[in-house]
């Protein structure tokens, strides 16, 4: 065991609890014969019916991602031109975007110079697990979340309240019906723990890009607009591009 978990008592107990593994001794001939073996599959046939179906589905999803709805229409190109520091968000060092934990200020978002929001967020890495509803958000940044399934994911940055989207073109409102809305309201409208609204948006490459809209209760703020739109169930897909 290495790194910061080296002296961890619980993990040490786990390590001690393991009986010695009696693994069979493998011979070097395994490697030798592996190098001589022929691949068990042939080259992939291009544009098979199944692949065409997937491509069509993927294209449909991506088309859906770019549907723009009105709530951000007040935010125009002029207001998005440059950041106060004069650098565009696109130029921000990628390394600073630590797995889903980078929080952008509203000013940074608004200075994104018409960069698609999915580029503002961080490309997710690894495999998303929609079945584990209690997982924290960082663990959901994994993978492209089964690219063909779903356009976006919506998170509230509190205690794992989120709704994975497993269907194409699912409306945001569908996430927040009945009991979900009550929970959502209590979390993002009144919870002092709320850090913002976290969105995971699918980009043109099929990868998911998380972003956080931090809490800003000022009238007309990006946060209140997105929150209101979610609560009022009045847009169908998250806008991914600021447009004039």
């Amino acid at each position: 065991m290495k790194n910061k978990f080296e002296d961890d008592e619980v993990l040490a107990q786990l390590s001690k609890a393991a009986r010695k593994t009696k693994a069979p001794k493998l011979d070097e001939s395994i490697i030798q014969s592996a190098m001589l073996s022929k691949p068990k599959f042939g080259p992939r046939k291009f544009l098979t019916p199944a692949l065409m179906f997937n491509l069509a589905g993927g294209a449909a999803v991506l088309a859906g991602v770019f549907v723009f709805t009105s709530p951000f229409s007040q935010i125009n190109e002029t207001s998005l031109s440059t950041s106060p520091e004069g650098s565009s968000l696109r130029d921000m060092p990628k390394m600073s975007l630590a797995m889903g934990d980078k929080k952008f200020t509203e000013e940074e978002l608004l200075s994104s110079n018409s960069v698609p929001l999915y580029e503002v967020g961080l490309r997710a890495a690894a495999g998303y697990t929609p079945s584990e509803a209690t997982e924290y958000i960082d663990e959901t940044w994994q993978d492209r979340a089964d690219g063909q399934n779903g356009t976006l994911y919506v998170y509230v940055v509190t205690d794992a309240l989120y709704s994975p989207n497993n269907e194409n073109f699912k409306s945001l409102g569908d996430f927040f019906t009945d009991g979900k809305v009550a929970n959502l309201k209590s979390e993002i409208a009144s919870s002092s723990d709320a850090e913002g609204i976290r969105l995971l948006v699918q980009g043109t490459d099929g990868a998911m890009y998380p972003m956080v809209i931090p809490v800003n209760e000022d009238a007309g703020s990006l946060y209140t607009k997105v929150r209101d739109q979610i609560l009022s169930d009045s847009f169908t897909l998250i806008p991914t591009v600021f447009e004039q």
């Binding site: 910061k4 978990f5 630590a98 797995m99 934990d101 890495a125 690894a126 495999g127 924290y136 960082d138 663990e139 940044w141 994994q142």
Partner: peptide, 14 residues
């Protein structure tokens, strides 16, 4: 896991 150290560290911690 095909992920970042930061993510791995978080996963381990949790």
């Amino acid at each position: 896991l095909g992920t970042t150290e930061n993510n791995t560290s978080q996963r381990l911690k949790r």
